[in-house]
């Protein structure tokens, strides 16, 4: 391939990138979380997490701006080795950070996984009640996820793994029209030790694509500690 051709291809890619980022309804955000998981016994486990979200790219400019802080708790009851139900409660602080409404969120979840050699398929259904200051949003979501270790069929200490998922969401509230969202996520993770996992990934969100689509790209970072 000649030089000109490769330069042309490179330029076209850049132009595409430019187009993507020049859309005014595009935002780039980052989300970092730290989670602690504990097994109370063989059927019951609990999870606590702190999560912060911040803008990285907004109104066609790169800038750092905090948006919110979440405190999350999940209680999970394992029905058997691959079915579980969970209840979650989350408090989101926004008012003192960017002036948005604080939120109390209640979640009910059912999770089902199926393993086939190295691949694991996960189906998750969630119902959420998002209690905002002035009104409440009821949201239902379904996520299909796929995860596998990058070496062999078993995840050993020191090895990496991939997780990909797609999620569809529908929100109802008295104030707003029903809203549909779609999220695609890809993560790479490392099992650093028996108790620590680090994850890095991207999530692309089409928000309210039935009304006025907003595009959001999230840079995800997380640490998961198991004690």
């Amino acid at each position: 391939m000649s030089y000109t051709k490769s330069i042309l291809v490179f330029w076209a890619c850049l132009a595409g990138l430019n187009m993507l980022f020049s859309q005014s309804d595009f935002e780039g955000l980052g989300e970092s979380s730290f989670a602690i998981n504990t097994d109370v016994n063989s059927t019951y486990k609990i999870n606590f997490a702190v999560r912060s979200r911040y803008f990285l790219y907004q109104n066609a400019n790169f800038n750092f701006e905090n948006r919110q802080l979440d405190f999350v708790h999940f209680s999970t009851l394992n029905l058997d080795y691959n079915h579980s139900v969970s209840l979650g409660v989350q408090y989101r602080i926004r008012e003192s950070i960017d002036g948005g409404s604080n939120e109390l969120r209640l979640t009910q979840q059912f999770n089902f996984t199926k393993k086939r050699e190295a691949l694991r398929f996960g189906h998750r259904v969630r119902f959420e009640q998002r209690l905002l200051e002035d009104f409440t949003i009821l949201r239902s979501r379904y996520r299909f996820a796929l995860d596998f270790p990058l070496n062999g069929e078993k995840l050993d200490i020191g090895e990496a793994y991939l997780v990909s998922s797609m999620e569809a969401l529908i929100s109802h509230s008295k104030r707003l029209k029903p809203e549909l969202d779609h999220r695609t996520t890809s993560l790479i993770g490392w099992l650093i030790s028996e108790s620590l996992k680090l994850q890095l990934g991207l999530e692309y969100r089409f928000e309210a694509f039935n009304l006025n689509t907003e595009h959001r790209l999230f840079l995800l970072t997380s640490a998961v500690l198991k004690i």
């Binding site: 999970t76 694991r120 997780v163 998961v224």
Partner: peptide, 8 residues
């Protein structure tokens, strides 16, 4: 641990 890994 040989039977569960990533998702919670």
């Amino acid at each position: 641990t040989s039977y569960e890994h990533v998702l919670y």
